[in-house]
């Protein structure tokens, strides 16, 4: 198995494992540490984590798959989660959605061929006063307009080009 985490991640995991009255509480924090480092919690990670907690891999996956933010497979460098809930609907997120689909040439749930963008819809992200909005990786972009979205996407494209994926 080629599963290896950075020293930093291992340290963080160590800290989480000893932090709670019952070790099990560290499961979600450990998911996040792994997710931040690898962009997902894949099967290898699931098995590794199961070992840390002395859980069955099934139990780990059961918890993992309960939460929408935790991915099992890596996705694009920029994961765009566009809010589809009521406030964004009232403020016509669908215009932004079609615009994004046109710009990126992907459907909801897909990743661009170059692996730079993944487009997905999300339930309410708590930005309803600044709708429509999207979360890209872990940052919020609010009061979206077509123009703003074009600008952002172009910027990310450039960055992906210069820095590699």
């Amino acid at each position: 198995m080629s599963f290896e985490l950075s020293e930093k991640a291992k340290k963080e995991i160590e800290r989480e494992l000893g932090r709670y009255p019952v070790k099990d509480s560290a499961l979600l924090p450990v998911f996040w540490i792994v997710h931040n480092e690898r962009g997902c919690v894949d099967d290898e990670a699931v098995e590794y984590i199961a070992g840390l907690f002395d859980f069955s891999a099934a139990k780990v996956l059961g918890v993992l798959s309960f939460y929408w933010m935790l991915r099992r497979k890596s996705a694009g460098k920029y994961v765009i989660s566009l809010c589809k809930n009521i406030s964004c609907y009232l403020r016509e997120y669908e215009n932004i959605l079609t615009h994004l689909q046109d710009l990126l040439k992907v459907q909801v749930g897909e990743t661009t061929k170059d692996g730079v963008f993944t487009l997905q819809l999300a339930e309410c992200l708590g930005s309803c006063g600044t709708a429509p909005m999207m979360m890209v990786n872990n940052r919020y972009y609010e009061d979206l307009t077509r123009e703003r979205v074009t600008e952002l996407v172009e910027g990310w494209r450039k960055e992906a080009m210069t820095n590699g994926k």
Binding site: A57, A58, L61
Partner: peptide, 19 residues
Amino acid sequence: TGELQFYKRGDRTEIGTYK
């Protein structure tokens, strides 16, 4: 032994073993 668990949630919830 914990072999069986639920995955996902809502009416997509599915029972199964790991892989």
